[in-house]
């Protein structure tokens, strides 16, 4: 799907609203992510970053709006002017296009590193054991974890777990990769090895959305920054402009408070 700027759009979020009872977590969010772009999602805790990420692969339902990934409406189908939620099969199919890594890694605790990677390859992609193992080894080697292939998550450090989690997501060859605060649970040293992996992903042109509090990561690698406050995007700017010449007063305050720390 091309937009007016003649650039291929990977993700389009249009007027998305999400409510839990009286609480509105997303208050009409709209933005686009172009192919091969790395977009950073910044904002204070509770501003809706995680919720927004989960809506993109329909781990969370939405109340209004539309989300497209590679031109396909996510999670719903349109009939008679209403959006009907898709069934398990169709939603699962769509999710294979979107990889995801989480703040708490969420590795399958009963499986080794390599089994974590091969599980979906086998039961979603239908690869046989040998085929899945080959893909998984390549992927683990790519994140520098091939020598820990047979270790269980409990035997790995946080940084190692996150790298396995990224390998698990990338093995499915997703069109876009969502990283939900991938380094927030890690100390600076462990977070460095994950940042190195993210850097390699961005060099390879992987389309990515990353929610983070790590400003240096954003400054060094992000192409564009979305700044969220209380369920709304208040600033959508190229990274360079975001840091040097922000427009919104909230962004200025945020950057000042982060610099003060």
């Amino acid at each position: 799907m091309m937009d007016a700027n003649e650039r291929a759009v990977a993700i389009e979020v249009r007027d998305v609203r999400k409510r839990w009872g009286d609480f509105e977590a997303l208050k009409g969010v709209s933005f686009k992510v172009y192919e091969r772009e790395m977009v950073a999602l910044l904002g204070p805790s509770g501003s809706g970053k995680s919720t927004l990420m989960r809506c993109i692969n329909h781990l969370e339902t939405i109340n209004e709006g539309r989300i497209y990934v590679c031109g396909e409406l996510v999670g719903y189908e349109e009939r008679n002017g209403l959006l009907y939620e898709l069934g398990d099969r169709a939603v699962s199919e769509q999710r294979t296009k979107v990889g995801m890594a989480f703040q708490s890694f969420n590795l399958f605790r009963h499986l080794t590193a390599i089994e974590n990677v091969t599980l979906a390859l086998r039961c979603v992609r239908g690869l046989d054991r040998a085929g899945a193992d080959a893909v998984a080894r390549t992927q683990l080697a790519w994140v520098g974890m091939e020598d820990k292939a047979d270790a269980y998550p409990a035997q790995l450090s946080g940084g190692q777990q996150q790298r396995v989690a990224i390998a698990r997501a990338m093995a499915m060859q997703p069109e876009v990769l969502l990283l939900d605060e991938p380094t927030s649970a890690l100390d600076p040293e462990l977070s460095r090895e994950v940042v190195a992996t993210i850097r390699r992903l961005s060099l390879e042109g992987q389309t990515m959305v990353i929610a983070t509090h790590d400003l240096s990561l954003v400054r060094d690698y992000a192409d564009r920054v979305l700044f969220m406050v209380a369920g709304q995007i208040v600033e959508d700017a190229p990274a360079e402009k975001f840091f040097n010449n922000p427009e919104n007063e909230r962004t200025v305050q945020f950057l000042r408070s982060m610099a003060g720390e």
Partner: peptide, 20 residues
């Protein structure tokens, strides 16, 4: 979190239950 991770990989509901 593990259920979310399995779903995010495109695993079907019954696969999440039986495999994870």
């Amino acid at each position: 979190g593990q259920i979310l991770a399995a779903q995010a990989l495109g695993m079907r509901g019954h696969q999440v239950v039986t495999r994870v």
